[in-house]
Design a protein around this nucleic acid. Sequence first.
RNA 1: GCGAUCGUAGCUCAGCUGGUUAGAGCGCUGGUUUGUGGUACCAGAGGUCACGGGUUCGAACCCCGUCGGUCGCCCCA
Length: 411
Amino acid sequence: MAKIQTPRPIRGTQDMIGETADRFAHVVETFERVRKLYGFRRIELPVFEATAVFSRSLGETTDVVSKEMYSFEDRGGDSLTLRPEFTAGIARAYITEGWQQYAPLKVATHGPLFRYERPQKGRYRQFHQIDAEIIGAAEPLADAELLIFADHLLKELGISEGVTLTLNTLGDAASREAWRAALVAHFDGHRAALSEDSLTRLEKNPMRILDSKDPRDQAVVADAPDIDACLTDEARVFFERVTDGLKAAGVAWQRNARLVRGLDYYRHTAFEFITDRLGAQGTVLGGGRYDGLIETLGGPATPAVGWAAGIERLAMLLDEAPAATLDVVIALEDDTMLAQALTGLAALRGAGLSADSVTSGSPRKRFDKAAKIPARALVSVGSRDGGLYLNIHCDDVALAGRIDALMRVGV
RNA sequence: GCGAUCGUAGCUCAGCUGGUUAGAGCGCUGGUUUGUGGUACCAGAGGUCACGGGUUCGAACCCCGUCGGUCGCCCCA
């Protein structure tokens, strides 16, 4: 048979094993645990949707829709898209599945997302996020609770050191429009000082100039108007309520008056937990209030707020890999005792002890091989005078006794 | 789409200003101690030096191109 060339993995996808996979699983497990503490219900969603779900919600940012999404036609000629984010799909489900009946609805999910981008540190084409949303709650307490949840999660993961919550308000629709107009006027008056990239941003997405990395833009950005002057009284009060909630819960934060969202449906609270430990990808967890989104998708006007965080990025920030230590590892040193070893293995696992065995290769080498597998106890199974002979190496005397009893079941 | 950088056993890497049959550790396979042993000792298998051209008496090493990885720019829902 002709040897074929093994297909390569797709650019930007990952195959995880060992420490990388353990870190990933630890993030997901911690998220699942903490999310229950806050009463967020687990939801499951399709990985692909009608392209309109995303193109409609993303709207004006044509680059994102046309160049960054994995879209394709299915056999029926419908345009489908691999989800590039969770929020639009959740909003669609909220409308089409009648989830209004549960409002206000606190939901959480996690899974793969897809964006057609050039991979770099902490950025992949198939990547994974955890996600939490509160839909149908207009009050600032919802924003605060989501932030308290996020802060708690980062602390549980042990990565809150070196990660700071940066917070801003985009105000209500009126405040946002006023600020946008003030920014355009400011930047338009300083065209000569701006970089080429920012000149095109001025046409397409002027608020983005605020987070330009080009040093030429820094001076112009520095004395750009803050939103504070543009805020309506209602918007100002809303933001105060959010920060009051954070204060009461003991969550530290920093104001970043330059933090923006490109999409029109964002209102009020916008936030990012950022770090300088991930190179150019500084955002660990981000979100905000998107009161306009569900209406954009043809649903009733519905207030909503949420956040998402990259699992890979969180996993990279974990100080040490979660231990993958077994309770017991067995070295079968005499093949005539195979059946007894298997019986013992089943008894150990039935009693809730994690266990694995080394039963292949040269019998005399199995002990050394087993000794290299991290475990609390190392058990060699051999024979003496035709009968079972056990040798248990374990610092924990009580555990050793338990293992000895379980390994002799049925003898 | 653009830029920088890298590509040598399954893995992590050596390999001098270009000079014989390309090296180590780990892993894998086999053997040794007639042993209750904590990662031992010996041996073996495993390499189109990413791929394709070029320069040269001679290229893993120099030049060009292609592909791939990494990091950054753009973008960031």
